[in-house]
Simulated assay, not measured.
Amino acid sequence: MGPDRQIGPGWRVVGFPKSHTDLPLTRYEAGTADGVPAVQVLTDASYGMLVHDQLPGMPGRLQWRWRLDQPLAGGRRTPDLSSKEGDDAALKVCVMFDHAIDRIPFWERTVLRVARAVSAEALPAATLCYVWDSAGPVSREGSNPYTRRVRYIVLQGRDAPLTRWITENRDVAADFARLFADELPDAARTSPEKLPKVRTVLIGADSDNTGGRSAGWVADVQWQR
């Protein structure tokens, strides 16, 4: 049974284009942890995102619960979000935006258009990721080392408790306005209604760069209106 049918309608797993890699997909399975119905996220030198296309709208407060049972480890490299060689995360929840392509630098615009041409997905011009980084410190913010089209905030770090549910509640509009301030008009930085609309929300985890393994859970991803 495919992951989308196991987990529920609207969810689907997306990996790299088949023409570019035979990389294994991160596994997403419906289950229960401490009585909480959730999605189990399992990586093993793998990559993949669990995308929900039915969670669009204006950015507001996003809430979810997550827990990490097995930190990302056991690979050929140590996880490091600032380097291409170590750019893996044990868990992440990301929000993709309909960001205007003319707001991004010319070279990045060109790269994005090429990426869209070779991918079956309508790749967004801006993605904000909330990360559980099992190897790094909490509260770190930055850009993905492969592309500035993805920027992240580390909510849980190496000292976070394991096998315990943690609830997150984020003001997505404020976070996006701060991390993408260099590409927004002045009015949008203080007016959420002027920000790009949300295209979709996804759950993710990957260990393709480090070759490691991790195991965690995500539950109750929902907008707080």
Rank of each mutant, 00 (worst) to 15 (best):
T110H: 00
A125G: 13
F97P: 00
P71H: 13
V131D: 02
S134I: 05
A122Q: 12
L123T: 01
G75A: 01
A120V: 12
K92G: 00
R113N: 11
R116Q: 14
E108H: 04
R77E: 13
A120Y: 10
L81P: 04
T110D: 00
S83K: 09
W66N: 02
R103S: 06
T78F: 02
L123G: 00
A117P: 00
V118G: 09
G75T: 01
P71M: 13
A100E: 15
E141T: 15
D88Q: 08
S83P: 00
A125L: 03
G142Y: 07
C94V: 10
L91E: 04
V118M: 14
D133S: 12
W107E: 15
W132M: 05
A117W: 11
A120S: 15
E141D: 13
G86R: 06
F97R: 00
L112H: 08
L91Q: 05
V131R: 02
S139T: 11
C94K: 03
V138L: 03
D98R: 09
A73E: 13
F106K: 14
R116A: 09
L128D: 04
A73N: 10
V95G: 08
S119V: 10
G75L: 01
D102I: 00
H99N: 09
D88H: 06
W107H: 15
R109G: 13
L68Y: 09
V138M: 05
F97C: 01
L128E: 08
A126E: 05
A73D: 11
R77N: 10
W132P: 04
V118W: 13
V111R: 15
W64L: 06
D102H: 05
I101P: 08
V131P: 02
I104N: 02
A122L: 10
A122G: 04
P137W: 12
L68P: 03
R113F: 01
